[in-house]
Structures are given as C-alpha cells and as structure tokens.
C-alpha cells in the first residue's frame, strides 16, 4: 500500500468523517423551515418487538417526546443486523442481561430471562408497520413492549395483543408485511444496522444508549419541550 493511501485510510478519512459530523447548520435550517411552515419534527425509531433494548427505547422515547412538537414515527422491523454476524446468537442472549440493566434505569423489571425469537413477534411488526402514525400507534407499541418484556414470560399469544390493538385502534389489526420489508430497507439506507436506532435531523443514534444525546439534538434543532 502506498504511503499516501495508507495515510488517507488511517488519518485523513476518519478526520473528514468526524469533522463533517459536526456540521449542524443544514439540519438546524431544515428544522426551522419546518416550524416556519407549521410542520412538526419527526423522530424515526427502527425497533424490533423481539428486542428488550427496543422495548426500553420505545417506552423511554415516548416519555421524552412528550411536550415536543415531534412526530414519533415507530418503524418496526424483523430482519436486521450485520450480515452473517457470527455473534448474532450471543448478542441476543446478552441482550436479555443488558435489558435488565436498561429496565432498571426507567424503574421497570425485566420479566423474561430468555431471548424472544424474532419470528414470534413478527405478527406485531406486521400490524404496527401498516398502521397510521400517531397517538394510537404509540400507545399500542408502548403497551405491547411493556407486556412483552416487563409483564410476561413464556409463549406469546396473539389473542392478548389483538385485544390490546382493539383497545388502541377500535378495530381489528391487519398485517402489512410489505410495510415491514419497506422499514427494513429504509433502515439499511439510513445507515443503522441494529435496533433500536433513532433517526432525526440527518443523524442516527442507538436509542437505548443515547437518550441524552437525542434530547440534546432535539433541543439544538429547536424541537424543545413547550
């Protein structure tokens, strides 16, 4: 490898990426333009119902967005992660241990000791992905995540969640698998490779670990708590 190429890879490239990440003016201008035209901010959360960190993020962000003029765009996915990741299974097992710690931060206790297979909760992703954005969807996702990870153990019965859906939407759920696949593709395009990932104003964050950063970024964009 030439010296110049080596230096570009080891020094110049990383420095440019870091420097570019500190440019905030375009995102702030775009947010100001949205406010000037009466529109809301939008926080997209890519999450999996099978993932305890996602459950934490859905509940935590729903609380943190209260009082901000920001649409909570809940985008469930089923298939995600680094392709051919040899650590996939270990990460799912570790996720339960880690979920216990995250739960403690918001005053909850994890009720499960084993990971959930993503296919077991795929029906929830199918329902939520096709539903209209808004308060009813947030209510459902918060309640479903709470029930899945903080109030139950063992098998996941679809019937109990259908009741919950009816309470939130006043109608039966319908499954939109195409919308789930669209979320997965969009997530990949945006950059996140794991859940939960929050995207707002051109930045994305691992939502379970960066609650404070997300709140700071929302403030910087002008989407403050009123």
């Amino acid at each position: 490898m030439s010296k110049l190429r080596d230096r570009a890879e080891r020094e110049i490239g990383p420095r440019v990426i870091v420097a570019a990440s500190t440019v905030t003016a375009p995102a702030r201008a775009a947010a100001a333009a949205r406010r000037a035209t009466g529109r809301s901010g939008r926080l997209e959360l890519y999450f999996g119902f099978d993932d305890p960190a996602s459950a934490f993020a859905v509940i935590d962000l729903a609380r943190r967005l209260e009082g901000r003029k920001v649409i909570f765009d809940l985008l469930p996915v089923v298939v995600r992660g680094i392709a051919d990741d040899p650590a996939l299974e270990r990460k799912r097992i570790y996720g339960v241990t880690d979920g216990r710690r995250l739960a403690r931060r918001i005053g909850l206790t994890l009720s499960r000791s084993e990971p959930i297979d993503p296919q077991q909760t795929a029906f929830l992703a199918g329902w939520a992905a096709g539903a209209p954005r808004g308060a009813a969807l947030t209510r459902f996702c918060v309640a479903a995540c709470s029930r899945l990870w903080f109030e139950s153990d063992g098998p996941i019965g679809e019937g109990r969640y259908e009741e919950l859906w009816r309470e939130c939407f006043g109608a039966a759920p319908f499954t939109d698998e195409a919308a789930v696949r669209a979320n997965e593709k969009q997530m990949t395009r945006r950059g996140p490779y794991e859940t939960p990932a929050a995207s707002i104003g051109g930045r994305w964050f691992f939502a379970q670990d960066r609650s404070a950063q997300i709140a700071d970024w929302l403030d910087e964009l002008g989407w403050t708590v009123k």
């Binding site: 680094i82 996140p192 490779y193």
Partner: peptide, 17 residues
C-alpha cells in the same frame, strides 16, 4: 471479525459526540 462500512462510519460520528 468483519466490521461493515456503515458501522465504521457510525462509530466515528457517535464517538465524536
């Protein structure tokens, strides 16, 4: 172990913050 480009890019930005 592989480290995809998306992960490398995100890591630099996230660590800076």
């Amino acid at each position: 172990e592989s480290v995809p480009v998306a992960k490398r890019l995100h890591t630099m930005r996230d660590v800076k913050r």
